[in-house]
């Protein structure tokens, strides 16, 4: 069963074509990294998976359930909002700028969504939240406000917050790009642990080392299109596309 499948996904902003016929299938337990120069549409692709962007054309399946089949922006699929919501909740999202809720403590940040959206029991959720905090190494920061945390700590809380909804897959949108260099490692470590636990992950990243080490497949995007999909060994050592080669050359040989 594929977790996510897209077929000829297109996204326009007016005349600007941001995504051009992107087709990709992601299997359960896979870790896929999206790399490419900025403006290539990596983030837009990721964001259209969980409907933060509405796609213009193409099909999107989540867990083999067809959510979108759009022609000229109009969805051809009849699906109730509840079904759509249920499918989208299988995706947890982590943002570049963390987007924690500043008015809530770390623990409240993690507990708010399960309690409000999934109507979970408060005591159970608190236990889960504390476990997740321990997992990301921040159990002693439960009652601190996000503003008092470093960027790396905030991002780890954001990961715990997404995990509290118990999603089947996690989307990471440049999770380390807004961090000071010395804080990148702690976030990547949490992500590596998550991958080792078997979580399906789609990661937009500029961390080539992480992509090389952790991912099962690497996707190279350029100018809104998916140019190359391959295992990290092949893509990093012997890319088949000329653009991939140029990009890797400029990133890896600084």
């Amino acid at each position: 069963m594929s977790m996510i499948r897209t077929e000829n996904l297109c996204k326009d902003f007016g005349d600007l074509k941001v995504l051009k016929n992107c087709s990709l299938t992601i299997e359960q337990g896979e870790v896929v990294c999206l790399i490419g120069p900025s403006g290539a549409g990596k983030s837009t692709y990721l964001r259209s998976l969980n409907h933060l962007e509405t796609i213009t054309e193409g099909k999107l399946w989540v867990e083999d359930k067809l959510l979108d089949d759009r022609v000229n922006g109009v969805n051809q699929v009849k699906i109730t909002p509840q079904e759509r919501q249920a499918a989208l909740l299988e995706m947890g999202m982590v943002f570049q700028r963390f987007n924690l809720f500043p008015h809530l403590t770390v623990l409240e940040n993690i507990m708010l969504a399960p309690i409000t959206v999934k109507k979970r029991d408060k005591a159970e959720t608190e236990q889960l939240a504390r476990e997740l905090l321990a997992k990301v190494g921040l159990h002693e920061k439960a009652d601190v406000y996000p503003g008092k945390l470093s960027g790396g700590q905030q991002q780890r809380v954001a990961i715990a917050r997404a995990l509290a909804m118990q999603p089947k897959m996690m989307l990471f949108d440049e999770p380390t790009s807004a961090l000071d260099p010395e804080l990148v490692g702690e976030v990547l470590q949490v992500m590596k642990n998550l991958a080792a636990d078997g979580m399906t992950m789609i990661v937009v990243t500029h961390e080539m080392g992480f992509a090389k080490e952790v991912s099962d497949r690497v996707v190279f995007m350029y100018d809104g299109a998916i140019l190359e999909v391959d295992t990290p060994e092949k893509l990093f050592t012997n890319p088949s596309n000329e653009r991939t080669r140029t990009f890797l050359h400029s990133v890896l040989n600084v």
């Binding site: 933060l52 700028r97 963390f98 987007n99 708010l112 959206v117 909804m165």
Partner: peptide, 17 residues
């Protein structure tokens, strides 16, 4: 910040919530 709305949407909150 717009990011607050995006985070809320990604976590499944309705507009009212």
């Amino acid at each position: 910040d717009k990011g607050q709305f995006e985070a809320a949407k990604a976590l499944g909150f309705t507009y009212g919530q």
